[in-house]
Design a protein around this nucleic acid. Structure first.
Lengths: 345, 345
DNA sequence: AATAATCCTACAATCGTTTGCATAAGAGCA
DNA sequence: TGCTCTTATGCAAACGATTGTAGGATTATT
């Protein structure tokens, strides 16, 4: 057993050429769709047969070196463990693989230097484009891509300046859905657990919250808003603690994110308070499993999978027709009413 | 604006060589740790300075073509949307990047042909190794890697024949934990929601269940076990329906997987039954958020992140010393007792 | 029938590194 | 001084594809 080199070496273009009795360049042309018309039909058939017979698989590395393209796109996510990104990734991968593209995802964290580094290394690997789920409102990675003229699409989060295409949810409208629902139930003292302001979702959802309240003639006191330092359950509880300590009179809270809402749940448990009896809570994202928590979370649903799909399509367009107008797609969110909201006592 | 080609081309080895006044090959040697000792210290310093000055970044594609290595490893997961894999992926990526390796994950689904295809394309991209979270008990992808002499490590699931290294949880022990707990509470009529038998976890956890019951002198009737066709919430409810229809007398169910347990929750809700009053439930995996569902799920915890770490280490070892003994790491699970289990009425 | 146009195919350069081999310079030794 | 032995560098050939250019057959045109 364990023969030293059982590795039957992959067959190369040259071997196929020899087998078909033609020059390697002819094989190349015969085999790639774009140039097949340059070679005579009978020769093409002979080549195809030889290739199939030998089990030829073109070497993408060699092709990349020569062409500068790779049929791969990179995806940068801030936290691969955050369930929100799963459907986005799934959507992207599905749409791209339909075009013969592979996806290479990198868990980039929130550190800018690391993000740039990762992006740089993806570019070095000749990715044909980048999907960024990491961007801050003013992002250096975007600038870098622009310099290199690398197609890039933003997903879920947008930049402040619309330099590149993006597909996002209508964050302000989403908050309006949440606020309208709470006000419809009779709430007036409503607080907001905000996300990081450097991120478009954090910024916009906060603005959306304030605007929606104003639309009902409700002035929002700064004390009614607490900003979490990241989108995580842990930072959610610390922000929630600060908010409720400051404003114990609140009867409802609209969170910028489901994870923050769950952090709030944790705090309520810790304090022996009941949701929705003592406090109504609405989340944002409708990520997997929030329909099963106790109580099932009322939240703003975003079509994440669709979001990934659209982003992939946009990127393909940008890759194929080089340049291509930058355009924004904004998806309309819907409200999933479950059990975490009720009329105030 | 939009200058046609603002793309300042990346600097190459040749340019660095010119700047330092040496031959490209010398630059190559001076810059890579393994061969630096071949070049004089002063020259090496000069080269390093030139490289830094020009902002040289080696081209990994060209290097791959020449060396056949890539400093990338591929990871195949069956379902990227399944939260169980997030911490595994995180653990793998973290450990690998510490060694200067990148991770390229592919969502392979459950289709064998697709898995093989994906693995093949990763190999074509010259990955230095593969981590498989997809394997069935007898897996063709493993065979393919063996043929190509490509280092491979299994994670979470194992093969029936131990042909390659793997890091898994002690599935039988995990089920013993679950069963012992239920029996300790006074249950006797205990059922099992089993996972797919082609997968080691499905197979082993079923055997573990039967063995643990036997250890308490309890014979397990086949009717007390229902096999789900996949690890999903949806298939969980259909299996649960079949199981409870057949054996309405059960007072507890040990599921092979948290998703299946949640499917069982769905069914209980649908029938107006309460957990744990009418039925105690224990899951397996302790995936994110199951501590927040209603009721919080008692489940067997597996160190998924650690699992990823270990797998990465194993793979690094296999890549560096070529060959390397195949060895198995089995992690001990623990029981997280929450609110879904109680004494029978 | 001669010339122009068309169509295929072969040749060779190229992408950016790495690495076996040759060689020049310097060190050590008799 | 003449010899071998290191040591440091240059040379050039890979790795496996793609593609501009050139030239040999065919066919069409007058």
């Amino acid at each position: 057993m364990t023969r030293p080199r059982p590795t039957q070496k992959p067959v190369t273009l040259k071997e196929v050429a020899a087998a078909a009795g033609v020059h390697p360049s002819t094989v190349s042309r015969a085999l790639s769709a774009g140039t097949r018309h340059l070679v005579a039909d009978d020769v093409a058939a002979r080549v195809a047969a030889a290739a199939a017979g030998l089990g030829y698989r073109p070497d993408p590395v060699a092709a990349s070196l020569r062409t500068g393209r790779s049929h791969m796109v990179g995806v940068l996510v801030p936290d691969i463990a955050n369930p929100v990104f799963s459907p986005i990734l799934g959507g992207i991968a599905e749409a791209l693989s339909a075009h013969g593209y592979s996806t290479i995802v990198a868990d980039a964290g929130n550190d800018r230097a690391r993000q740039i580094d990762l992006a740089e290394s993806l570019m070095a690997r000749r990715v044909d484009g980048l999907v960024l789920a990491t961007v801050a409102r003013d992002d250096p990675v975007v600038a870098r891509c622009l310099e290199r003229a690398l197609p890039v699409v933003l997903v879920n989060r947008a930049e402040a300046s619309a330099r590149v295409s993006a597909v996002v949810s209508d964050d302000m409208a989403g908050m309006a859905l949440a606020v309208d629902h709470l006000i419809g139930l009779g709430h007036r003292a409503i607080g907001h657990l905000a996300g990081p302001p450097q991120i478009s979702t954090g910024h916009l959802r906060r603005r959306g919250f304030v605007a929606a309240m104003a639309a009902h003639g409700l002035e929002v006191d700064d004390a009614a808003i607490e900003t979490a330092s990241s989108y995580s359950r842990e930072d959610g509880v610390v922000a929630a603690r600060a908010l409720l300590d400051r404003r114990p009179d609140l009867t409802a809270v609209a969170a910028a994110n489901d994870l923050l809402a769950l952090g709030l749940y944790d705090l309520l448990n810790e304090r022996g308070l009941a949701c929705p009896r003592d406090l109504s809570v609405v989340g944002h994202n409708d990520m997997p499993l929030v329909d099963m928590v106790a109580p099932p979370l009322t939240t703003v649903r975003i079509g994440h999978r669709e979001m990934g799909h659209e982003a992939a399509q946009l990127l393909m367009r940008a890759i194929n027709r080089d340049a291509g107008a930058r355009l924004n797609i904004v998806l309309s969110p819907t409200l999933m009413i479950r059990k975490s909201t009720a009329a105030p006592l």
